[in-house]
Design a protein around this nucleic acid. Sequence first.
DNA 1: CGTTTTTGACCCGCGC
DNA 2: GCGCGGGTCAAAAACG
Length: 212
Amino acid sequence: MENYHMLFGATTHAQPSSATPNSYNFMATAGTGTSGGGLHDHDRGQHSGHGGRSSSSFFAELSNNNDSKDGGAPVAADSGRGESSAAAGEVDRPAARRKGDKKERRPRYAFQTRSQVDILDDGYRWRKYGQKAVKNNKFPRSYYRCTHQGCNVKKQVQRLSRDEGVVVTTYEGTHTHPIEKSNDNFEHILTNMQIYSAMGSTFSSSSHNMFH
DNA sequence: CGTTTTTGACCCGCGC
DNA sequence: GCGCGGGTCAAAAACG
Protein backbone atom coordinates (compact mmCIF):
# COMPACT_ATOMS: atom_id res chain seq x y z
CA MET A 1 0.00 0.00 0.00
CA GLU A 2 0.98 3.46 -0.31
CA ASN A 3 2.15 5.25 2.67
CA TYR A 4 -0.27 8.02 3.00
CA HIS A 5 -1.36 7.40 6.42
CA MET A 6 -0.79 10.47 8.32
CA LEU A 7 -2.98 13.34 8.90
CA PHE A 8 -5.03 15.08 6.41
CA GLY A 9 -3.33 18.32 5.95
CA ALA A 10 0.04 16.76 5.76
CA THR A 11 -0.74 14.26 3.12
CA THR A 12 -0.16 15.31 -0.38
CA HIS A 13 -2.83 13.03 -1.65
CA ALA A 14 -5.51 14.78 0.19
CA GLN A 15 -6.81 17.38 -2.06
CA PRO A 16 -5.89 20.83 -0.95
CA SER A 17 -8.78 21.91 1.08
CA SER A 18 -7.95 25.46 0.45
CA ALA A 19 -9.46 25.49 -2.96
CA THR A 20 -12.01 22.75 -2.71
CA PRO A 21 -13.95 22.47 0.46
CA ASN A 22 -14.66 18.89 1.14
CA SER A 23 -18.27 18.11 1.02
CA TYR A 24 -19.77 15.73 3.46
CA ASN A 25 -23.12 14.17 3.52
CA PHE A 26 -24.03 12.87 6.85
CA MET A 27 -26.70 10.45 7.77
CA ALA A 28 -27.45 7.97 10.41
CA THR A 29 -29.36 4.82 10.64
CA ALA A 30 -31.01 3.22 13.52
CA GLY A 31 -29.46 0.35 15.22
CA THR A 32 -30.93 -3.04 14.90
CA GLY A 33 -32.93 -3.13 17.99
CA THR A 34 -33.97 -6.66 17.86
CA SER A 35 -35.49 -6.75 21.24
CA GLY A 36 -37.67 -3.91 20.41
CA GLY A 37 -38.11 -1.26 22.94
CA GLY A 38 -35.05 -0.98 24.98
CA LEU A 39 -32.58 1.13 23.19
CA HIS A 40 -31.45 3.36 25.92
CA ASP A 41 -28.84 5.63 24.84
CA HIS A 42 -26.75 5.61 27.88
CA ASP A 43 -23.71 7.59 27.69
CA ARG A 44 -21.00 5.83 25.96
CA GLY A 45 -19.71 8.84 24.24
CA GLN A 46 -16.96 9.56 26.62
CA HIS A 47 -14.38 10.39 24.07
CA SER A 48 -12.11 12.53 26.05
CA GLY A 49 -13.93 15.66 25.59
CA HIS A 50 -10.98 17.84 25.67
CA GLY A 51 -11.66 21.05 24.03
CA GLY A 52 -15.01 21.61 22.49
CA ARG A 53 -17.72 19.17 21.78
CA SER A 54 -16.63 15.63 21.68
CA SER A 55 -16.79 13.83 18.44
CA SER A 56 -19.63 11.75 19.70
CA SER A 57 -21.95 14.60 19.25
CA PHE A 58 -21.21 14.38 15.63
CA PHE A 59 -22.56 10.91 15.50
CA ALA A 60 -25.86 11.74 16.93
CA GLU A 61 -27.61 8.56 17.62
CA LEU A 62 -30.86 8.12 15.82
CA SER A 63 -32.95 5.55 17.46
CA ASN A 64 -35.96 5.08 15.32
CA ASN A 65 -36.78 1.59 16.21
CA ASN A 66 -39.67 1.77 13.90
CA ASP A 67 -41.03 -1.44 12.81
CA SER A 68 -40.63 -2.02 9.15
CA LYS A 69 -37.84 -4.31 8.49
CA ASP A 70 -34.59 -2.81 9.27
CA GLY A 71 -32.46 -1.64 6.50
CA GLY A 72 -30.83 -3.64 3.87
CA ALA A 73 -28.43 -5.31 6.16
CA PRO A 74 -29.56 -7.63 8.84
CA VAL A 75 -26.59 -7.14 10.97
CA ALA A 76 -27.39 -9.54 13.67
CA ALA A 77 -24.76 -10.34 16.16
CA ASP A 78 -21.92 -12.23 14.74
CA SER A 79 -22.86 -15.73 15.24
CA GLY A 80 -23.08 -17.72 12.16
CA ARG A 81 -19.67 -18.46 10.95
CA GLY A 82 -19.88 -22.15 10.62
CA GLU A 83 -16.67 -22.25 8.88
CA SER A 84 -14.66 -25.07 7.66
CA SER A 85 -13.56 -26.42 10.94
CA ALA A 86 -15.52 -29.44 10.06
CA ALA A 87 -13.04 -32.18 10.55
CA ALA A 88 -11.26 -30.40 13.24
CA GLY A 89 -12.30 -30.91 16.75
CA GLU A 90 -15.36 -29.44 18.17
CA VAL A 91 -16.16 -25.93 17.64
CA ASP A 92 -19.47 -25.51 19.06
CA ARG A 93 -21.84 -24.66 16.41
CA PRO A 94 -23.30 -21.31 16.39
CA ALA A 95 -26.90 -21.29 17.20
CA ALA A 96 -27.94 -20.81 20.72
CA ARG A 97 -27.91 -17.13 20.69
CA ARG A 98 -31.29 -15.78 19.93
CA LYS A 99 -34.05 -14.78 22.12
CA GLY A 100 -34.00 -11.65 24.07
CA ASP A 101 -30.37 -11.08 24.41
CA LYS A 102 -29.81 -7.82 26.04
CA LYS A 103 -26.71 -6.80 24.22
CA GLU A 104 -27.95 -6.34 20.74
CA ARG A 105 -27.67 -2.66 20.30
CA ARG A 106 -25.50 -1.85 17.43
CA PRO A 107 -25.99 1.58 16.04
CA ARG A 108 -24.95 2.36 12.57
CA TYR A 109 -23.73 5.63 11.31
CA ALA A 110 -23.03 6.45 7.76
CA PHE A 111 -21.73 9.47 6.08
CA GLN A 112 -20.71 10.34 2.64
CA THR A 113 -17.57 12.18 1.92
CA ARG A 114 -15.95 13.62 -1.06
CA SER A 115 -12.36 12.66 -1.02
CA GLN A 116 -9.71 11.02 -3.04
CA VAL A 117 -8.75 8.55 -0.42
CA ASP A 118 -11.11 5.89 0.75
CA ILE A 119 -9.83 5.57 4.21
CA LEU A 120 -10.21 8.58 6.34
CA ASP A 121 -8.17 8.57 9.45
CA ASP A 122 -10.55 8.92 12.30
CA GLY A 123 -8.03 8.14 14.96
CA TYR A 124 -8.74 4.46 15.31
CA ARG A 125 -6.87 1.53 14.00
CA TRP A 126 -8.71 -0.62 11.51
CA ARG A 127 -7.93 -3.99 10.14
CA LYS A 128 -9.42 -4.89 6.83
CA TYR A 129 -11.14 -8.22 6.89
CA GLY A 130 -12.90 -8.37 3.64
CA GLN A 131 -13.70 -6.83 0.37
CA LYS A 132 -16.66 -7.58 -1.78
CA ALA A 133 -18.12 -6.18 -4.87
CA VAL A 134 -21.64 -5.01 -4.61
CA LYS A 135 -24.07 -5.22 -7.37
CA ASN A 136 -24.75 -1.76 -8.53
CA ASN A 137 -21.36 -0.42 -7.97
CA LYS A 138 -18.28 -0.70 -9.92
CA PHE A 139 -16.02 -0.34 -6.93
CA PRO A 140 -15.78 -2.98 -4.28
CA ARG A 141 -16.78 -2.41 -0.71
CA SER A 142 -14.19 -2.82 1.96
CA TYR A 143 -14.86 -4.10 5.43
CA TYR A 144 -12.82 -3.00 8.38
CA ARG A 145 -12.86 -3.81 12.02
CA CYS A 146 -11.38 -2.03 14.96
CA THR A 147 -8.28 -3.80 16.13
CA HIS A 148 -8.79 -3.05 19.75
CA GLN A 149 -9.63 -6.06 21.79
CA GLY A 150 -13.20 -6.18 22.81
CA CYS A 151 -14.10 -3.39 20.50
CA ASN A 152 -16.38 -4.80 17.92
CA VAL A 153 -16.79 -1.74 15.91
CA LYS A 154 -16.95 -2.34 12.23
CA LYS A 155 -16.72 -0.01 9.38
CA GLN A 156 -17.23 -0.35 5.69
CA VAL A 157 -16.06 1.90 2.99
CA GLN A 158 -17.45 2.10 -0.44
CA ARG A 159 -16.89 4.39 -3.30
CA LEU A 160 -19.64 5.27 -5.65
CA SER A 161 -19.16 4.12 -9.15
CA ARG A 162 -20.86 7.16 -10.45
CA ASP A 163 -18.77 9.70 -8.70
CA GLU A 164 -15.37 8.48 -8.03
CA GLY A 165 -14.89 11.25 -5.59
CA VAL A 166 -17.68 10.22 -3.30
CA VAL A 167 -16.93 7.73 -0.61
CA VAL A 168 -19.51 6.27 1.69
CA THR A 169 -18.21 5.25 5.05
CA THR A 170 -20.43 3.33 7.38
CA TYR A 171 -19.60 2.84 11.00
CA GLU A 172 -21.27 0.15 13.01
CA GLY A 173 -21.12 -0.02 16.74
CA THR A 174 -19.51 2.15 19.30
CA HIS A 175 -15.93 2.23 20.36
CA THR A 176 -15.35 1.25 23.92
CA HIS A 177 -11.89 2.60 24.22
CA PRO A 178 -10.20 5.92 23.78
CA ILE A 179 -8.80 6.98 20.50
CA GLU A 180 -5.20 6.23 19.88
CA LYS A 181 -4.34 9.23 17.91
CA SER A 182 -5.02 12.79 18.50
CA ASN A 183 -8.55 13.86 18.37
CA ASP A 184 -7.72 17.12 16.85
CA ASN A 185 -7.45 15.41 13.62
CA PHE A 186 -11.04 14.51 13.60
CA GLU A 187 -12.15 17.79 14.88
CA HIS A 188 -10.31 19.42 12.16
CA ILE A 189 -12.34 17.52 9.71
CA LEU A 190 -15.50 18.44 11.42
CA THR A 191 -14.59 22.01 11.25
CA ASN A 192 -13.84 21.82 7.62
CA MET A 193 -16.63 19.65 6.58
CA GLN A 194 -19.92 20.89 5.48
CA ILE A 195 -22.96 18.90 6.16
CA TYR A 196 -25.11 19.25 3.18
CA SER A 197 -28.05 17.20 4.14
CA ALA A 198 -28.84 14.80 6.88
CA MET A 199 -30.79 11.91 5.61
CA GLY A 200 -33.36 10.50 7.87
CA SER A 201 -34.25 6.97 8.59
CA THR A 202 -35.67 6.51 5.17
CA PHE A 203 -32.24 5.64 4.10
CA SER A 204 -32.52 2.19 5.47
CA SER A 205 -35.34 1.25 3.22
CA SER A 206 -33.10 -0.44 0.81
CA SER A 207 -29.49 -0.12 0.15
CA HIS A 208 -29.86 -0.53 -3.53
CA ASN A 209 -31.83 2.57 -4.06
CA MET A 210 -29.42 4.54 -2.16
CA PHE A 211 -26.39 4.00 -4.23
CA HIS A 212 -28.20 4.07 -7.44
C1' DC B 1 9.16 -11.24 13.21
C1' DG B 2 4.54 -9.33 14.08
C1' DT B 3 0.84 -7.32 12.04
C1' DT B 4 -2.14 -6.15 8.30
C1' DT B 5 -3.80 -7.00 3.51
C1' DT B 6 -5.13 -9.98 0.10
C1' DT B 7 -8.21 -13.21 -1.68
C1' DG B 8 -11.22 -17.31 -2.35
C1' DA B 9 -14.37 -19.97 0.08
C1' DC B 10 -18.05 -20.29 3.02
C1' DC B 11 -22.33 -18.92 5.23
C1' DC B 12 -26.69 -16.84 5.81
C1' DG B 13 -31.09 -14.43 4.89
C1' DC B 14 -34.19 -13.52 1.52
C1' DG B 15 -36.66 -13.80 -2.92
C1' DC B 16 -38.20 -16.53 -6.43
C1' DG C 1 -35.37 -25.70 -2.40
C1' DC C 2 -32.23 -23.11 -4.97
C1' DG C 3 -29.85 -19.04 -6.34
C1' DC C 4 -28.47 -14.41 -5.54
C1' DG C 5 -26.43 -10.85 -2.88
C1' DG C 6 -23.92 -9.62 0.78
C1' DG C 7 -20.97 -10.31 4.94
C1' DT C 8 -17.20 -12.86 7.23
C1' DC C 9 -13.32 -16.06 7.92
C1' DA C 10 -8.91 -17.65 7.46
C1' DA C 11 -4.51 -18.96 5.07
C1' DA C 12 -0.96 -16.99 2.79
C1' DA C 13 1.30 -13.00 1.05
C1' DA C 14 2.91 -8.42 1.87
C1' DC C 15 4.63 -4.93 4.51
C1' DG C 16 7.17 -2.37 8.54
